[in-house]
Computed example of a mutant assay.
Amino acid sequence: MKITIRTAALAASMLLLASQASAQAAANPAAATASSPEALALAHGIVDTAFPPERREEMMDKLMTTVASQMKAGMPATFMGDPGLAKIQ
């Protein structure tokens, strides 16, 4: 299986967000309970406004490309010559 830097960055971001959410839920169990249908509808409206469904995939791809290129630029040159890293790019 070939893993790109973009995929690895996305996975790392998701893990970070999940761990933060778990820590917040543990600290405040009431926050982890279900919201009202009205609050859920409002949340969906906010997400749809911020990330229009017809452009959502394009926006996320552009974001991950930008993040991956910034991460790659910040890596020491010795990492980029590593044969193991070359296999997963």
Rank of each mutant, 00 (worst) to 15 (best):
T66R: 04
F51I: 13
F79C: 13
E58I: 10
S13K: 06
P52A: 09
A32C: 03
A12M: 14
L16T: 12
I46E: 12
M14P: 01
S13V: 05
L40W: 03
S13W: 02
A27I: 04
L42V: 09
A50C: 10
P76K: 11
S19H: 04
G84N: 15
M75H: 08
F79Q: 07
E38M: 09
A25Q: 03
M59R: 02
L40T: 00
I88M: 15
P83W: 09
Q20E: 06
D82W: 06
V67L: 00
A27E: 12
T33E: 15
A39L: 10
D82L: 07
S69G: 06
L15Q: 15
A9R: 00
S22C: 02
L15M: 15
K2I: 10
D82K: 02
T7V: 09
K2H: 10
A31Q: 06
A26T: 01
A43Y: 10
I88S: 07
D48P: 02
A27D: 09
T66H: 04
M75L: 15
G81M: 07
H44Q: 13
A30F: 02
E38H: 08
F51V: 14
P37D: 13
A34Q: 12
I5H: 07
S13A: 12
K62A: 15
G81N: 14
A23W: 02
A41W: 04
A86H: 09
L63A: 12
A68N: 12
M60G: 01
D48N: 14
M64R: 01
R6K: 15
G45C: 05
P29C: 06
L17N: 00
K62Q: 12
A68L: 11
M59C: 03
S36G: 10
T49A: 14
R56W: 04
I3V: 14
A12G: 12
D61I: 14
S13N: 08
G74T: 08
G45M: 06
Q70Y: 00
A9K: 00
E58C: 09
A9F: 00
M71R: 04
T4P: 01
P76I: 08
L40I: 00
M14A: 11
L85E: 09
D48C: 04
L42H: 13
L15F: 07
A39Q: 14
A77M: 07
P76Q: 10
A23Q: 14
A43V: 05
A21K: 11
D61P: 02
I3W: 04
A21V: 11
M60N: 03
A23G: 13
A39K: 13
E57L: 07
A11Q: 13
A12Y: 03
I5D: 09
A39W: 04
I46G: 04
D82P: 05
A41M: 09
S35Q: 09
S19F: 14
A68D: 06
E54G: 03
L17C: 00
L15R: 12
V67H: 00
Q20H: 01
A68C: 11
A11E: 12
M1E: 04
A31R: 05
P29H: 10
T4G: 08
A25T: 01
M64Y: 09
S69V: 06
M1W: 07
